[in-house]
């Protein structure tokens, strides 16, 4: 029921945005090559569906690959930081540096080094996902209640079993916030990568359409990207909730 409720709010928000869009066109009489009507975008969406699907497929693969890699690397880093104190002094500053380097600035470099293919875009998405997962995972692992650790000690837990049964589940809520953040950031990484140099993908399509003044196609590509990003967020959110049935009612909701 609650989920249905959230969906309804999402639809209402979308309709409001659509109305605002239409209103701006009616009031300012802006020409269609600057801002196309929703109707024109819808027509392109249907007419060029195969083209959009092809490019969307490429971008979605990049995002998903980046998400998986970023989460795995982030988790590995969080575990290493939490359990190998000597690593902290070198790894923590590096983690911070990796985050403050502007991705826009290194996108052309990555394309230069890794090529025009998907690899450079996957790396971009991975980089953007890695930091929130690593830092929230590390925070979560660090903040295990001392009482639980005492209990595990008197119950004769080995470090490994303690990690599996106490520390990881205790870190899961914090880690889940990091993964949610990552899910919204991942598409940005992939699209920036495509802007810097690509021969396919939604970012490439948008750039190309823009250059050819096909603003309606650019909007259609944008819509597909937004729709997928929302779908990705809600699927991951549902998956994380299923992983934490005990935590269900304490999570903050988007809507």
């Amino acid at each position: 029921m609650k989920r249905l409720h959230a969906m309804r709010h999402l639809v209402i928000s979308a309709l409001l945005l659509l109305g605002l869009w239409q209103l701006i066109i009616a009031v300012t009489a802006v020409p269609p090559y600057i801002l196309p009507t929703p109707q024109a975008v819808l027509e392109v969406l249907i007419e060029k569906a195969p083209l959009l699907a092809h490019h969307a497929g490429v971008t979605i693969s990049e995002i998903l690959a980046g998400l998986v890699l970023g989460i795995l690397l982030g988790l590995a880093t969080a575990l290493a930081l939490a359990f190998i104190p000597r690593l902290r002094r070198t790894l923590l500053p590096m983690l911070l540096i990796s985050q403050v380097i502007p991705l826009f600035a290194i996108a052309p470099l990555l394309v230069l080094w890794l090529g025009y293919d998907m690899l450079s875009k996957v790396v971009m998405a991975t980089l953007i996902i890695y930091f929130p997962v690593a830092s929230t995972g590390y925070d979560g692992l660090r903040q295990t209640q001392q009482g639980w650790l005492d209990l595990a000690h008197t119950l004769g837990a080995s470090p490994w079993r303690r990690l599996i049964h106490i520390q990881l589940p205790a870190a899961l809520p914090a880690l889940a916030s990091g993964i949610r953040m990552a899910a919204t950031a991942a598409p940005i990484g992939a699209v920036i990568g495509e802007w810097a140099g690509a021969s396919q993908g939604l970012g490439y399509l948008m750039l190309n359409a823009n250059a050819r003044m096909e603003i309606d196609l650019m909007f259609a590509a944008l819509l597909v990207l937004v729709a997928f990003s929302l779908l990705l967020y809600f699927s991951l959110d549902a998956l994380l909730r299923a992983l934490m049935p005990w935590h269900r009612d304490r999570l903050t909701r988007l809507s």
């Binding site: 209640q145 009482g147 005492d150 209990l151 008197t154 049964h165 589940p169 899961l172 005990w246 935590h247």
Partner: peptide, 14 residues
């Protein structure tokens, strides 16, 4: 051979 019980119940919520 020692069981430990604290002020907090220390139940694991998961």
């Amino acid at each position: 051979r020692v069981a430990w019980m604290a002020q907090q119940d220390l139940l694991l919520p998961w």
